[in-house]
Simulated scan of single mutants.
Amino acid sequence: MRGAGRRLRLAALFAAAACLTLTLSGCADVDATSPSSARGTAAQGAPGAQARFGSVDCREAKCIALTFDAGPSENSARLLDILKEKRVPATFFLLGKRHIEKYPELVTRMAAEGHEVASHTWDHKILTRISDARIREELKRPNDAIERLTGHKPTLMRPPQGRTDADVHKIAKELGLAEVLWTVTAKDYTTDDSALITKRVLDQSSRDGIILLHDIYPGTVPAVPGIIDALKARGYVFVTVPQLLAPGTAEPGKVYR
């Protein structure tokens, strides 16, 4: 019996660890819509859905989306130079405090160069741990700041650590925001090794993937050229998150991954 009890305790520990890992990786048990489902739903209901959208049709092309959290930072200008040189669009989920307010010219540049500018909250509060009023403030303040700088109000947000729930969905819907999680994480917050960051991204990437990186860490931006070149060599086309969903559109209050 003691052996059986020990096995049960070990199983419980493994289950808890697995749950934590899934939550931190953005793969927690959330009812999320995949890009292909978003595209398929739109195609079924929209007349003329066979038209191409922008320069890429992800119903035909092997698309993948690069996304960057928690900037802008002192590394973002170099990142934008790389993306411009490689002709790759990205989606930036920006923080407000100490980031948007510190580097407003980079926010303007991101939008001007064709990247999708979105929200990662004002101060990286875990939204599932705070009141509805504070959730609303965390989401509204960066939206207002981004709109002042770019002329466009964000339609996407990424909850810190991917932690979300029904209250977050409700408030996001009120504010016209869809939530975007991810399918690929390099965990670049754990290492400055650019080669390891590159390997982790390439090992996990697949069609319709959403890659999570952080341009605030020193090892990340140097890894980006190699990631882009290797994925292009595999036949991938880089798009923003809205392009990945087209002809579908991100619906406020829904979660995409």
Rank of each mutant, 00 (worst) to 15 (best):
A38W: 00
P89G: 00
T220I: 03
I146P: 06
K173E: 14
Q161E: 13
R141H: 06
Y236M: 07
S55L: 13
P242M: 02
D132Y: 08
G226W: 04
A77L: 13
A112M: 00
P225W: 13
A16S: 13
K84D: 09
D31A: 14
L95E: 07
T41N: 04
A77S: 14
A186D: 05
M157R: 00
V180T: 03
R98D: 15
I197F: 05
R148G: 10
P160Q: 02
R98Q: 11
I211C: 01
A223V: 09
V241G: 00
F238H: 03
A118W: 02
T191I: 05
H214F: 08
A43E: 12
L175F: 08
L139T: 10
A77N: 10
P47Y: 08
A246W: 04
K170F: 05
R78A: 15
A112E: 07
L139I: 12
A12S: 14
A233R: 10
T21V: 13
F68T: 00
A145W: 03
P104I: 04
N75H: 15
T185G: 08
G151N: 00
K140H: 07
L24Y: 13
A166Q: 12
Q44H: 07
I126W: 12
M157C: 07
T67F: 01
G176Y: 03
Y189P: 01
L10G: 04
Y217K: 07
Q161A: 13
V180N: 00
A38K: 00
L196A: 14
A46S: 15
T67Y: 01
L79K: 03
K232D: 02
L196S: 11
R6L: 15
G45C: 02
A38Y: 00
I211Q: 00
A38L: 01
D188A: 04
P35R: 06
P104D: 05
A133Q: 12
T41R: 12
